[in-house]
Structures are given as C-alpha cells and as structure tokens.
C-alpha cells in the first residue's frame, strides 16, 4: 500500500499539495507515483519566479526508463525549488512527502485548492 497522508491534497496526475503557509504550498509527487516510476535519476524543475496555470507542465521527471511530465496542481508563482534534487534525485523515492519535495508555490487563487482531491478520493483513484 502506498502512503497517502490524510492532511494533504492530490491530483489525478499524482502530484500532492501540502499547505505550508496561508498562500504557499509545497508540491511533489506521491508515494504511489514514485513507486510506479521506479528509481528517479533526474528532476527538471522551473526557476524561482516562474508562473504556471493550473495543470500546466512545470517540469519533468526521469526514472531509470521513463520521462514523465510534472503538472502544477494550482495556478501560482514558484517561490522556491528543492535544489537538493539536483545532486540526489533519489530523495523523491526515499521521502516523497519530505525531503523529496519539488517546488513551493505562491497560490494565485486559494479557492483553487478546494478543487483538489482529498486523501480518500486519491486512494480511490489509484485503487487503494
């Protein structure tokens, strides 16, 4: 069974959103997603200040045999990126909800967070 922390919110594309401050969220991929991908070897992240619309591609992730897109769960501006992934992308496998986070985003419309999946909805989505 994959870890699906109940306090977080999710997308059908397997990103999670953790509320950091009032309008700042931490974004990464779920434990299920890292398990499906396999060993992550590279994460291509945006730069601080980049702005994204909801579900637009903010980066790519490469596992041993596949490259996949990363989708921005809500619209907003990147205020921080996890530079540690450059040297150790396997953090995404080992600690997806902690040290394997990807970007922090200043959310454009906080109400957009209401459209994300709950932990139970996400569990149903992945059949767990």
């Amino acid at each position: 069974m994959s870890k699906i922390p109940p306090a977080l919110q999710y997308t059908e594309e397997h990103e999670y959103v953790a509320l950091d401050e009032a309008d700042i969220v931490q974004i990464g991929i779920t434990d299920y997603a890292q398990g499906e991908l396999g060993d992550v070897v590279f994460v291509e992240l945006p730069t601080i200040g980049d702005k994204f619309d909801r579900m637009h591609v903010f980066g790519t992730i490469e596992a041993v045999k596949a490259v996949s897109e990363l989708f921005c769960p809500v619209a907003g501006e990147v205020v921080d990126i996890n530079g540690a992934l450059d040297k150790d992308p396997s953090l995404v496998n080992r600690d997806p909800y902690g040290n394997g986070w990807m970007i922090k985003l200043r959310v454009k419309r906080v109400d957009d967070l209401k459209e994300l999946l709950s932990a139970s909805d996400y569990a149903a989505h992945i059949g767990e």
Partner: peptide, 11 residues
C-alpha cells in the same frame, strides 16, 4: 534496449 516518455496524455 528501450525507453519511454509520457506527456500530453500519451506515451
């Protein structure tokens, strides 16, 4: 030897 990419709802 194979490799895959997924984007835009396709692979």
């Amino acid at each position: 030897g194979s490799a895959q990419t997924r984007e835009g709802g396709a692979f």
